[in-house]
Simulated scan of single mutants.
Amino acid sequence: MNKWKKELSFILSILMVVVLTACGSISGESSSDQAGSESEGKDKTLTIGQINWAENIAVTNMWKVILEDKGYNVKLNYLNMGSTMTALESGDLDASLEVWLPVQDANYLEKYQDTVNFSDATWFDNAKVGLVVPTYLEDINSVKDLNENKEMFDSEIVGFDPGAGTMDVTEQLIKDYDLDYELLPSSESAMLAEINKAVKDEEPIVAPLWSPHWAISKYDLKFLEDPQNTFGGVEKIHHATRQGFEEDYPEVSKWFKNWKMDDQQIGELIDYVESSEEPLDGAAKWVEENPDLIDEWVK
């Protein structure tokens, strides 16, 4: 009897070990599966910086539509240019879709070139930046004309976001031409409101602006000649990503590099976004109407 009890106890011990091992294996497989699922879910989430500029709002919403159609979850973080670069450096942001080179954002390239990936690929190759005035100011055609007419402009250049590369270049332009002017920072929307008011009343105004931008044609503005070329010539628009982005998202990285737009395409996209109650709705409409172009990027 004692011998039988010992054998039974031994068998039960073995069974207990088998059961515990099996449970551990099942638990391990479940944890592994869960971790894999979480990793896959994480890999499908992208965070893109959005700056409150017309073309930036347009292209970030456009890519949100395209990427979410492809199964990604896209978050847009609203930041200024300086904060965007800091977030890319820290890895809190995956991508920024607008870096102007070789002049406007050269300061950010110099500061972050070792910690942020600035793509060699460009998505717009015919950008221009400079000071603009309404065309009805027929005698104001060059930056050199500003000091002679400083009373007309109250010695003020109406600017936009502090920290934007173009604002820094405008400050440099004031030094280069020894302009007796003050650059007034605000926001793009506030600057455009001032331009709208001035044009409506046919008053003088001077401001830094860029092309592509819907305001150039809507308000009939002209770029002032820049003999010293402080603003540079033709600018190209690149994108930037955090370190490791290409390894984590090789497919999306390839799509961003394939991305190209011309004046008509970006102008139409901006118009769709600006005329919609929600930017995403305007971007979605434009994407729906341009399937062949989108296919060229995401092939």
Rank of each mutant, 00 (worst) to 15 (best):
G24T: 14
K299M: 03
K299N: 11
N2M: 14
E38P: 05
I140T: 08
P279C: 13
A215D: 09
W214K: 08
E171L: 09
N147D: 11
Y108E: 00
W100G: 01
D178K: 12
V273S: 05
L209A: 08
K111M: 03
N229H: 08
A127V: 02
S217A: 12
K128M: 10
E38Q: 08
S187V: 03
V18H: 05
I14N: 00
D105Q: 02
V65I: 11
K175L: 13
K299C: 02
V19H: 01
E274A: 03
E288M: 06
Q113G: 00
K175A: 06
C23E: 06
L184D: 08
I66D: 02
T241S: 01
A240D: 00
A121W: 06
L46Y: 11
N290H: 15
L76C: 01
G82N: 11
D105R: 00
L224R: 09
A54T: 13
A198Q: 03
L173W: 06
H239A: 01
V19T: 06
D92Q: 12
Y136C: 14
I237K: 03
P250G: 04
R242L: 10
V234Q: 15
T86D: 06
P291K: 15
F124V: 01
G165I: 03
P208Q: 09
T45Y: 04
Q265A: 15
Y72G: 01
L101V: 00
I237Q: 02
E110I: 00
E251H: 04
S186Y: 04
D69M: 11
K299G: 10
Y219L: 10
